[in-house]
């Protein structure tokens, strides 16, 4: 798959990178032999089950944690040879636990992003203030400038965190699960903002997330870290089709469904149902049956119950000799729940 990756401009790359924890006498290696490229102007999502080392990778790439082996190259330069202040002009990070101590308004927090540029005592010029204003504007947090960070909602605080990283005016931005505590509309909004910023500003943006669905929809490229410490790079669609997702994420209770691009819970069903019908009512009837623990079948003889959907006002349910008609999906579900089923 590497052959497909021919980035025009590499902002950050690694060679033989090994990450993990070094406890002096014993080292715990999480992943090794990582040859990664983060291209400028692309929005890359890092996926992987819990505990595979997504955070460790982000921390290692940002220099918060020393790698066990290998090199990290920033704009072609060895990471370690770049002094801290210069490095801070090249890479910015957004972590989930970004609560400032004490009374700090959003503007002051974003202003911390200007530290790599400001003077010894932190004095800022008009250009610094312009950049801060622009950063707040870019994430849609202009109105939050004078609010105390401690009083912001999770979503608002995450925007301010990203504005702080933007104020740093770096080439690379690394985000560790910034969408973790947000509701769906906020997550979509944030992903959209970040993708647009990557494209418009030429930022190399790496974001770790658990949100497969959004990553598939928004990312320009995916990095998938599996439990064996291997990292698969590629376009979202290519990875989704190749079945590599299935290998990485599938568990006893979860199936990768390539036709919908999502995972499905599958408690092993004892009872099967047959659904006849089309359109939206049929779709949600199947979802209801799955949720209640029925397996779906086409074979009427194997089905404990069969449901015919005439239209969105008529469900005809056949169970053995009995036949029932329901005028809404609510009534049908209530009947399913009220009936006794042999397990």
């Amino acid at each position: 798959m590497d052959a497909t990756l021919t980035p025009a401009l590499t902002a950050l790359s690694t060679q033989g990178l090994a990450i993990g924890y070094d406890h002096g006498d014993s080292a715990r290696c999480i992943a090794s032999g990582l040859d990664l490229t983060l291209p400028a102007g692309e929005f890359v999502c890092l996926l992987g089950p819990n505990g595979t080392g997504k955070s460790t990778l982000i921390r290692s790439l940002s220099g918060m944690q020393a790698p066990l082996a290998g090199d990290i190259l920033l704009a072609g330069q060895d990471f370690r040879s770049i002094p801290p202040r210069q490095r801070a002009r090249l890479v910015s990070v957004v972590l989930t636990d970004a609560l400032p101590m004490g009374m700090m308004d959003a503007y002051a927090m974003v202003a911390l992003g200007r530290h790599p540029y400001s003077g010894w005592f932190g004095s800022m010029g008009p250009a610094d203030h312009a950049r801060i204003e622009w950063s707040l504007e870019a994430v849609g947090a202009r109105d939050l400038a004078r609010r105390q960070v401690s009083e912001l909602s999770d979503g608002e605080r995450q925007k301010v965190s990203i504005a702080r990283a933007l104020a740093q005016a770096t080439k690379v931005m690394l985000l560790d699960e910034p969408t973790a505590f947000l509701d769906l509309p906020r997550r979509v909004e944030l992903m959209r903002i970040l993708r647009d910023l990557a494209h418009s500003e030429g930022l190399a943006l790496l974001l770790s997330t658990h949100d497969l669905d959004l990553a598939l929809r928004f990312a320009d490229r995916l990095w998938v870290l599996n439990a064996d410490g291997q990292l698969i790079q590629g376009y979202p669609e290519a990875i989704a089709m190749s079945g590599e997702f299935a290998q990485v994420f599938e568990t006893e209770n979860l199936d990768w469904d390539p036709s919908s691009g999502s995972f499905r819970a599958h408690p092993i069903p004892c009872l099967h149902a047959k659904v006849v019908g089309e359109g939206i009512p049929a779709l949600w009837t199947k979802r209801a049956l799955e949720r209640l623990g029925f397996g779906l079948t086409e074979d009427a003889n194997a089905a404990a119950v069969s449901i015919e959907i005439e239209n969105e006002n008529q469900w005809r349910v056949t169970r053995g000799e009995q036949q029932h008609e329901f005028a809404s999906i609510t009534e049908m579900i209530e009947w399913l729940l009220a009936s006794k089923w042999k397990r």
């Binding site: 801290p84 490095r87 890479v91 636990d97 970004a98 400032p100 700090m104 927090m109 530290h115 790599p116």
Partner: peptide
């Protein structure tokens, strides 16, 4: 004020 990891990321020794 943002914690040591952040301080490091904006260039603080």
């Amino acid at each position: 004020l943002l914690g040591e990891p952040y301080a490091r990321s904006v260039g603080t020794r």
